[in-house]
């Protein structure tokens, strides 16, 4: 546990000193969402109808784009090699790095989401559920993406490759994240959708650090 905190603090410190990273992710998120009114027209009803989906898809892309660097910098400067050789279980390392990633990118996305929902004319009744669904869904995205980020180490064209691998795996989170908000807006219970999102989160928490650690180990073999 102390090791978890040590690695988490170091990653947070790195991220804050570099500063721009998480800001850029939020900026991407905002710009991607703002593109949609230009694409589908400023009709308030249409925008309100697609708001939840647009916000979720943009959040998904923003989270994925930032994941590319999750292990990449450590891999390039040799830190990952040393990290793998510490008397710390690699699963803890992966969990700590993913937590740091979520705190620096997932949380800002959640904070920016209500603003975008206003821009897209979403009914105020859906805001709470949108935030809750994002809070349950984005950690899953970070965890699933961490596997992809570990697998692309040393590959050519890592970023494009990551999206090709990870986006299909994001679909369940996307479906339930959007349907929770849609249910709330349509006057139905959002609870079952949120419960399934929580289930997905629990499954990813249990499995992803483990698979990610296996992926890192084999990345170090070459």
């Amino acid at each position: 546990m102390t090791n978890f905190v040590t690695i988490l603090r170091r990653d947070l410190r790195l991220s804050f000193r570099q500063g721009m990273d998480s800001l850029m992710v939020v900026m991407f998120f905002v710009i991607a969402v703002v593109l949609f009114p230009f694409g589908v027209g400023p009709e308030p009803n249409i925008l309100a109808r697609i708001a939840a989906g647009v916000i979720w898809v943009a959040a998904l892309l923003a989270s994925m784009l930032s994941l590319e660097r999750l292990f990449q910098t450590d891999y390039e400067d040799g830190s990952l090699e040393i990290l793998v050789l510490q008397p710390v279980s690699l699963e803890v390392v992966v969990a700590a790095k993913v937590t740091a990633h979520w705190l620096t990118t997932g949380l800002p996305l959640i904070a920016a989401a209500p603003l975008l929902a206003v821009l897209l004319n979403m009914d105020a009744g859906g805001f709470a559920i949108l935030i809750l669904a994002l809070a349950l869904g984005t950690p899953s995205l970070s965890l699933i993406g961490a596997i992809g980020a570990a697998l692309i180490l040393g590959a050519r064209r890592g970023g494009v490759l990551l999206s090709l691998m990870v986006l299909p795996l994001y679909i369940p989170v996307l479906i339930f994240g959007v349907s929770a908000v849609d249910a709330a807006l349509g006057g139905f219970a959002a609870r079952p959708h949120l419960l399934i999102l929580s289930g997905l989160l629990l499954a990813t928490v249990a499995l992803c650090p483990w698979v990610g650690a296996a992926a890192l180990r084999q990345a170090m073999r070459s």
């Binding site: 410190r13 790195l14 000193r17 570099q18 390039e76 400067d77 040799g78 830190s79 090699e81 040393i82």
Partner: peptide, 14 residues
């Protein structure tokens, strides 16, 4: 053990 490889693992912002 400690392992010192080719790369120095020094973070530029730390």
């Amino acid at each position: 053990f400690h392992y010192v490889g080719h790369a120095d693992a020094v973070k530029p912002v730390l």
